[in-house]
């Protein structure tokens, strides 16, 4: 194996890291500048939710894109993207708990039970917690690659719940959630196609 210092593209990872932080930096500077519109709390929650979903889909896109393009090194950024998705999910949830509800736990419990969009969102969050917690090399070794992989397929359920969360939230104009649903379905389709091909090859051998 080549020495880390001379590896080409060594600088890519920090760049991806900084790019992933940009939405938060932009949101923060808008907040400081008082540039979040008439309902800043809603703007913060929506913006963080948008980015949580976008980064989650980006993380999910790594493997399909890697297979389609043959760019094996893309796999190196998958964990970071997944953790950034979780980072924005946590910020999105915190903004709801603190800024919107201001720790009104009774109202929050009520929301989780009665508002189906919050039920779906909370379920997505809960499914993502064990995935974030088992993201280290050590955890992969401890669980074993097979079990780890099976567990992490749950990300597709979390992604679907996240899109559903958005879908249930909008009143009438479903264009935006449809775009996210389309991307998710495409990524899942690509993955399913690869799985089917692999299965077919195995069977015909």
């Amino acid at each position: 194996m080549e020495a880390g210092a001379s590896r080409p593209g060594r600088w890519i990872k920090p760049v991806v890291f900084i790019v992933c932080l940009m939405p938060l930096v932009i949101l923060g500077s808008r907040a400081i500048a008082g540039n979040l519109g008439a309902n800043p709390i809603e703007a913060v929650i929506r913006n963080l939710g948008d980015w949580a979903l976008r980064v989650l889909l980006l993380a999910l896109a790594v493997t399909p894109v890697r297979r389609l393009t043959g760019l094996a090194e893309l796999a190196r950024y998958r964990r970071m993207l997944g953790l950034f998705a979780f980072f924005y999910v946590v910020l999105h949830l915190s903004a709801y708990l603190v800024l919107d509800q201001f720790f009104d736990w009774e109202a929050i419990a009520h929301d989780i039970v009665k508002r189906r969009f919050i039920t779906a969102g909370m379920a997505a969050f809960i499914l993502l917690v064990p995935l974030a917690a088992t993201s280290t090399h050590r955890m992969i070794r401890r669980l074993g690659a097979r079990r780890w992989q099976r567990l992490h397929r749950g990300v597709y359920i979390a992604g679907s719940l996240a899109v559903l969360h958005y879908f249930f939230m909008v009143k009438a104009d479903i264009r935006q959630p449809l775009v996210y649903a389309g991307v998710l379905a495409t990524l899942f389709g690509v993955r399913a196609a690869y799985a089917a091909t692999a299965h077919w090859r195995k069977a015909s051998r």
Binding site: N39, I41, A107, K114, R115, R116, F168
Partner: peptide, 14 residues
Amino acid sequence: PRWSQATERRIGHF
């Protein structure tokens, strides 16, 4: 179904 109607946020207030 989407919003509790028990409370509201007055725009401009926290």
